[in-house]
Amino acid sequence: MTESLAARQAALVEALTSGKPVPHGIDGFRFEAARTALLRKRAGEVSRQWPMLAASFGARWKREFADWAAARPTQGSLRDGWDLARELHARGSLKGAAAEEFAGREAAMRYDGASAPHPRRTPAWRSAAGAVVVQFRGRVRVIRRAG
């Protein structure tokens, strides 16, 4: 009895997105090449949604994102970047323009970490490094502290 198509496909996706071993019979070198290409493609997609977050890593972005994402299946580039930014924010390592970008998103949209973000219907504000981000009727403004 051969394994069902559904089971084979599920094992392959799990291996590809969760850092699990290569499924039996598939060339390991080629599978790793595909895994790496996929992570780098994801990094590129996230950098379009989160340009300041990506820029804050400079030339290390693709590698650092790939390390972070290796065992995290994608939730779409908006949420992937958001999850990473929240982790960095919690560690206090989100700085400058990346911190402002993050605060802007948090002020503009409600994101529970588990489902698609939605625009906030009520005004909100978040503080970022050296600035306050205010959202009112969907418009986001950054107010920088003097000095």
Partner: peptide
């Protein structure tokens, strides 16, 4: 996608009857 997980990429099918 499979088993509720998005691959984030186009993946090849086995070239099988099923």
């Amino acid at each position: 996608r499979a088993g509720g997980v998005e691959a984030g990429h186009l993946l090849p099918l086995p070239r099988s009857r099923d």
